[in-house]
Design a protein around this nucleic acid. Structure first.
Lengths: 235, 235
DNA sequence: ACCGCCGAAATTGTTAGACAATTAGCTTGC
DNA sequence: GCAAGCTAATTGTCTAACAATTTCGGCGGT
C-alpha cells in the first residue's frame, strides 16, 4: 500500500480497513462501494488485492457483489455480527451504547447457562485449570496483562467444560468483544468493585458441582461488569 | 470448472466445495491443503479463483495461509461455527449426533430467553406479524413450503422483538441449521406431535406479556423438536 | 403518456504469466 | 548437538487482457 501501515498480507489489512469503514457507517447499508479499479487506485494496490479483500468481507456477510451492479453493503441484519473480527472492527469506532447493552444482554443469557453446564460436566483436568487461572488472577490482579489472560483462560476453561462446541465458538466471539469493553473500562480510572472474590465463588460452585450457585454467581459477575462498563462509557 | 456444477461465481462454488471437504473431515485439522497451483489444476480454474476461495475460508476461520508453509486447516475450535454458511456445510455431510445435540442445547439456552424478552418488549406491529404467521401455519400445516416459511417468519419476528441485534444474528445462524434438521426430520415418515398448538400458546403468552409462560412454552417446543429430531436421526 | 423490448456500456468474473517476499527445512560449520 | 545461514518452494502481488453478466438507457409500439 502507498501508506505502509500494518504488517501482514495486504488483503488482510485492506479487509480490516474496508470492514471498519463499513461497520462504522462510512458506507451505509445499501451503498455501492467504489469500483474495484477505483479502490485499487485509492489504496495503491492491485485489483487482485482488492478482490481478495472483498471476498473476505462477503464471507462475513458484509457485502455482496454482482456484475455491473458493483459491490453493495448488505443490510446490517445480514452481517455475521458474531464473527470475532467483525466484533473487533465494531469496537474500532465508538461502539454505540445500544450495541454494548446487546452484548451484555447476550452474555447474561449465555454465560450463566454455560456455568450451569460446566458445574455438572467439568472434568478434573478442566477444574484444575480453572483453579490455576483463579490463583494467577488473585495474585496478579486484573490490571496486569498476566491477570487478564488468566481471566480469559478461566472463562475459556468453563466454556470448554460445557462440552458444547457451539457454545465455545459463541463465547469466543463474545470474549473477543469483551476484551474491548474491558479495555475501555480500565481506560477510565474509577473505582470498581473487585471481581476476584466473585471469580473465587464461581470456581467453588463449579468445583462443588452446584449448578444453581454457578448460575447465580455468573449472573452477579456479568451484572457488575455491565454496570462498570456503563459507567465507564457514560464518563 | 471442468465439471460445470452449480451456477454462480466460481469462487463461491469452490469455497463451498473446499469448505465441505474440510468440515466433513477430508482435510483434518492441521493438514496442509494442496498448493494453490495444484488446486487450480485439480479444479480446472485459475489460481485467482482458488485464492479468492481460500480467502473466504480464512475469513470464516477454517484455514490460514503462510508463505512457503502452505494453507493449513485450523483447529476446529477456531472455526466460526456460527457462520450460517459453515453450519450449512456441516449438514451437507452426515451431521454427528453430538453436533445436533449441541445445536439443540444452544437453542434451549437462547430461545427461551429470547421469548421472555420478546414477551416484554414486542411492539404491536411485531405482534401482528407473529399472529399472521401462526395463522398461516395453522392453515397450511408444517409440511408445506408456505407453512415452513411462516414458521420461520414467526420465530424471526420473535427474535426481532427482542431488540437485540446480536440475538437476531445468532438465531439467524441457528435457524439456518434448524432448517436442515427439519429437512431430515420430515424425510423420515413417522408420527410427530403437532407443534402448532404450542406455537399458538407461545403467541398467546407473548401477546399477554407473560414472560414466564413464553419461556416455558419455548422450552417445551424445543424439547419436542429435539426428541423428534433424535428419533429421525436414530432411524 | 406509458409500457415493454432491446442494445450497449460498465462492472465484476476469470485467465495467464511473471516477479517479489517470505520462510520452512535442510545443510553446513562450529 | 546445536546454531546459523542457505535454498528452494510457496504464498503474495502485479499487470494486462478478455469474457460474462446485467443494469440502465433509449427506442419504439401501443
Amino acid at each position: 500500500m502507498a501508506n505502509g501501515e500494518r504488517r501482514g498480507p495486504a488483503h488482510v489489512t485492506l479487509a480490516r480497513t474496508l470492514g471498519i469503514a463499513i461497520v462504522t457507517g462510512d458506507y451505509p447499508s445499501g451503498t455501492v462501494l467504489p469500483g474495484e479499479l477505483e479502490l485499487a487506485g485509492q489504496f495503491g494496490v492491485s485489483r487482485s488485492v482488492i478482490r481478495e479483500s472483498l471476498r473476505m468481507l462477503s464471507a462475513k456477510g458484509l457485502v455482496e457483489s454482482r456484475p455491473k451492479a458493483g459491490t453493495r453493503v448488505r443490510e446490517r441484519a445480514q452481517w455475521n455480527l458474531l464473527d470475532p473480527e467483525l466484533l473487533a472492527w465494531m469496537f474500532e469506532g465508538a461502539p454505540s451504547l445500544g450495541f454494548v447493552r446487546s452484548l451484555f444482554q447476550l452474555r447474561m443469557i449465555v454465560e450463566p447457562a454455560a456455568a450451569e453446564l460446566a458445574a455438572v460436566q467439568r472434568s478434573a483436568a478442566q477444574l484444575s485449570r480453572m483453579g490455576h487461572a483463579v490463583e494467577v488472577m488473585a495474585q496478579q490482579g486484573l490490571r496486569t496483562q498476566d491477570g487478564q489472560t488468566a481471566d480469559q483462560r478461566f472463562h475459556a476453561a468453563i466454556l470448554e467444560a460445557t462440552g458444547n462446541e457451539l457454545l465455545v465458538s459463541l463465547s469466543s466471539s463474545i470474549a473477543a468483544a469483551v476484551r474491548w469493553t474491558t479495555f475501555f473500562k480500565y481506560r477510565v480510572p474509577l473505582q470498581y468493585r473487585d471481581p476476584i472474590p466473585l471469580h473465587r465463588e464461581l470456581f467453588e460452585a463449579i468445583a462443588n458441582g452446584d449448578a444453581g450457585a454457578a448460575r447465580g454467581v455468573t449472573e452477579r459477575l456479568i451484572a457488575q461488569a455491565g454496570l462498570d462498563t456503563e459507567r465507564a462509557l457514560g464518563a
